[in-house]
Design a protein around this nucleic acid. Structure first.
Lengths: 240, 240
DNA sequence: CGAGCTTTTGAGTACCGTCAAGTTAAGTGG
DNA sequence: CCACTTAACTTGACGGTACTCAAAAGCTCG
């Protein structure tokens, strides 16, 4: 029933040992030998943020990247008018901002906490130095960046040629583990944030959800959405 | 007066020597020793495409990347509805699709020729193998991907929170060499393609150009656009 | 229970896309 | 070189989608 159960199962006094274990389970570090991660971890330090705090700002020099242990982070980019677009919503056990390392860096987005959050701050210089000694890890890192590139290209398509219905449907279906059987997904943040992530206003998101509900395609209960037939949702959305 | 003078100055029988020279001037290869590029070039071959031809399709397995010698290529991503979004317009002397190399890959976009075009097809496997033997080159490649990531994030913002006026203004200003003195920019393709690149319809692009013209901010002559005061254009656009 | 959220619902509007016609430019063949 | 055809671009009228503003209803938590 707790909307953020993770905060309960992870001990707040995140020991370095526990963190090392969790780091080791991320796609990026899973292939790293333990004795490579350990020195990195030794130079890293946990940070705690309150909801609304800025971890780093768009354009500021990048010296670290981050592992999200507890809470939630929004990656935001702002326009001249002050309007904001959420590029990505970061979840626990995700790494983020590691891609900036190679540009001699400035952060391309702003990172803002959406709840009480603790992150592990990992220094980039040591990370890059380690990487350079192991071509295999570098190759893996390239694959990771390449994946992100694909993700962004897909996002670009969603934003430019898809309707609100299609965008939301795609988003929900991406959260679905399997597409050909009933599923229930939890929105990763409050609806206003999800709306911003999709390039919509909260009002529009609400209305689209309501339309889907009335069409019998989903059921909404707070932030939990049940999808009896994902494929039907896909078909319906593509017709709008 | 010729709209595509490049086709005249580059000998159509692109000798390998000439191509090597031009490759060496690209940001990616400028740091590569000659004896590293040569074997790569030996395995590569020039291809000629007519306008409309597909070089590779979204989702198809990637075995090569490309150097654009002559002509123009559109990188396109299509939605279920058939609507198309131009992700990028590739110009002569640009490299493209090199980022897919590391995903074991499939192309994330479709590449279509927009004019009679010749490209150099470079095999990925040899490229990656070379890269893996030289950490420095890998590092550089990571920087390149990182830059592309920044570019796409910026695009995302443009599409989601900016108006047609702002998008076009940003686009024109990016084509400007300097921002604080008068400039004349050439659109890199026909207006319909530029519109698709900006996520607009040709009609809307035409109207926005017309509004800018009437506001005295630009002058339009075919595909050449003069901007007497780039900063004024910026300010005007931000007010819309 | 009431204060401060988030979310929903409603009414009005603006922007941009669609459809259609007209104009200009470019390319083709006699 | 000039008629003719085709494509590129512009302009107009109209409509729909999604945004804005405003208010009410629903949660959450002290």
């Amino acid at each position: 029933m707790n909307p953020t159960p993770l905060e309960k199962v992870v001990p707040m006094g995140n020991s370095k040992e526990a963190l090392l274990l969790r780091l080791h389970h991320t796609p990026l570090f899973s292939a790293w030998p333990n004795d490579t991660i350990a020195p990195l971890l030794a130079q890293s330090q946990p940070l705690t943020l309150e909801s609304g705090d800025i971890l780093f700002a768009e354009g500021s020099p990048a010296r670290s990247f981050y592992f999200l242990a507890v809470g939630r982070i929004h990656l935001i980019t702002a326009a001249a008018t002050g309007q904001e677009k959420i590029v990505e919503i970061i979840q626990p056990d995700d790494l983020f901002a590691e891609a900036v390392a190679f540009l001699g860096g400035r952060y391309p987005v702003t990172a803002q906490a959406d709840a009480t959050t603790t992150v592990l701050e990992i220094p980039l210089d040591l990370f890059v130095a380690t990487l350079e000694q192991r071509p295999f890890l570098m190759r893996q890192m390239l694959a990771r960046l390449s994946m992100r590139l694909h993700f962004l290209v897909k996002e670009l398509r969603h934003l430019s040629v898809e309707s609100a219905e299609q965008r939301l449907a795609s988003y929900l279906l991406e959260l679905c583990p399997v597409v050909n059987s009933p599923a229930a997904v939890d929105l990763p943040a409050k609806k206003a944030a999800v709306a911003a992530r999709l390039g919509l206003t909260p009002e529009t998101l609400s209305r689209v959800l309501s339309r889907m509900r009335k069409a019998g395609l989903i059921e909404v209960e707070q932030r939990t959405i049940s999808i009896p037939d994902p494929l039907a949702l896909r078909r319906w959305a593509d017709g709008h």
